[in-house]
Simulated scan of single mutants.
Amino acid sequence: MEYIMNNIYVVGMGPGEESMMTQQAIDALEASDVIIGYTVYLNLLGERFADKELLSTPMKKERERCIMCFEKAHEGKKVAMICSGDAGVYGMASLMLELGKNYPDCDITVIPGITAASSGAAVLGAPINHDFCVISLSDLLTPWELIERRLAAAARGDFAIVLYNPSSRKRADYLKRACTILMEHGVTADRACGYVENIGRENTKAVTLTLGELMNTSVNMFTTVFIGNSQSEIIDGRLVTKRGYDIEGIHNNISSDKQQ
């Protein structure tokens, strides 16, 4: 990849650990003069990029953070905007591209990262190995009524579901509300589920449980929740959503081969 002036890289940094960043993300950060992002994400970068100009804005100042990127690019600096997980999954990529219409001399490159759905799934086992959807329970930018409709539709479609932003101090009961909606639309209380806290960071915690147990569980904002579909199972402590292979037939063939 060629790193040029007035080019802004919107970088998905994965969970934050360097070992879980793509090489493309590391290359872009190393080539940048300025790294801009939410303070928590900047802290996760550690010492490797401490020599860069590091700039941040508080929560709810995302637009200002994006404009800062364009201003720094106009100063002739190479700029990287960092996002946790993937920049295009509840990240800054869309806002950067929207605002980029006002800065036609800046070229924006989106660099993918490992999002919580895939990194958390790997910790739990294989919970999204078939059709799945991702729904955020944060109603900061999305009305709760719309979130409800999406939960109901996912339940009716028998999707495996990944819930981002399941809880916060102001939304302490949102996970329970979501579980209730799913059960109202046909998901049974014994549905196989799981959740992972602090994915890819210190003190990672993974738990498998049923939907009935999940709805009475307290989680934090660093948790990603996985709800299986009707074919999902907890196998040896791992949450597994079946792909549809004929496991019994495979077993019979193996047994037949051994007998021969």
Score class of each variant (00 low, 15 high):
138 S>C: 06
96 M>V: 15
59 M>G: 06
49 F>A: 11
206 A>N: 11
43 N>Y: 04
144 W>S: 04
98 E>L: 10
258 K>W: 10
109 T>Q: 13
247 I>T: 09
181 I>L: 13
126 A>R: 09
12 G>R: 00
18 E>R: 15
22 T>P: 10
258 K>L: 15
172 A>H: 12
57 T>C: 10
53 E>K: 13
73 A>I: 13
154 A>G: 05
230 S>P: 03
124 L>F: 03
259 Q>E: 14
144 W>V: 14
56 S>A: 14
80 A>G: 11
108 I>G: 06
250 I>E: 02
207 V>S: 15
143 P>S: 06
207 V>M: 06
92 M>S: 11
217 T>V: 01
3 Y>R: 06
148 E>C: 14
27 D>P: 09
84 S>C: 08
86 D>S: 14
218 S>Y: 03
211 L>H: 03
242 K>Y: 05
159 F>D: 05
16 G>H: 08
156 R>T: 15
201 R>V: 00
104 P>Q: 05
46 G>E: 09
26 I>N: 09
103 Y>G: 04
89 V>D: 01
254 I>W: 02
153 A>V: 15
235 I>K: 14
91 G>T: 10
61 K>F: 00
253 N>F: 07
28 A>G: 07
226 F>H: 09
199 I>T: 14
40 V>Q: 10
199 I>S: 15
206 A>H: 11
144 W>H: 01
181 I>P: 02
87 A>R: 05
128 I>D: 02
65 R>S: 03
88 G>H: 05
137 L>N: 08
22 T>G: 13
121 A>P: 11
7 N>D: 10
150 R>A: 04
254 I>D: 00
188 T>E: 12
99 L>C: 10
124 L>I: 03
80 A>E: 12
169 R>L: 00
93 A>R: 10
132 F>G: 01
210 T>V: 12
